[in-house]
Amino acid sequence: MKRLGVGFALHADLDCLELARPIIENDADYLEVNPETLWRQRDGRIERNDFHRLFREIRRRSRKPFVAHGLAFSIGTPVAAERARVRTWLARLRDDHRTFRFAYMTEHLGWTTVDGLQAVLPLPLPLTREAVRAVAARMRLLASVVPLVGFENNATYFALGEVAREPEFFNAICRAAPCGMLLDLHNAHAQAVNFGVDPFEYVDRIDLDRVIQIHVSGGSESEAAWLKSRRVYRLDSHDGPVPERVWRLLEHVRPRCRNLRGIVVERLNGTFGAQDVPALRDEVRRAKEIMRC
């Protein structure tokens, strides 16, 4: 098992790349990219966009490993419902893997599309055997492109089962498919806040030997005015500093994740300026300290 260290999420955004340049060049041990942001649609075909070339150049110059974090393979949608789209996605991912030689690839656990309708946001799955089979089939397809793959626990605002039972669902997927897991600790924190579960108990019930990567990030709260009830939810928005509770979760799980390759610090483009870069660098350094444990 090759340990990568602490990575940073790259965004296809020139301003963000420039702002984060010190982290990308000096602090990050590896870089995480969203393959779909390196594609464009032209005349009905999906092809490389200009960021593809730029990211290839970053990889060449930095000599840092790249990992892929997919946005829209929609791993909870049964393959039979969209075979053409699956073929297109896999062909593009193959092309990206040839270029970037991803150390591994992860995807969001959920589904974003069905019948051509695009929710874009990963939506919750029922915690059923049928859903386990659907995800496992997709993970096998991804593994035919990038040998080491994983799924990421999601933050959702409604559920189709008991949220406290989600860890058993994750473990069942890991047993059904040759895959690992990307444990997103802010998402676990958000599930705990939104559904009233204990985040430490939640992560303790996950088979942590299957965790290949951890995400840490910040988030924010929805505005009370958005809902008539004025109820507020914790959002998976990657738009703020990593909360202390997420750091505590990281310290808690890190020693038990025996097959962990790396930790990625996520921060969405457009949500930080030059004045925030020193604090972001500190987050990467703090993650490194914990990664070494």
Partner: peptide, 15 residues
């Protein structure tokens, strides 16, 4: 029945 109305509405807004 597990899906809370507010959560569904919020998800629709985010979509």
């Amino acid at each position: 029945r597990h899906a809370d109305d507010d959560g569904v509405r919020l998800t629709g807004l985010i979509v």
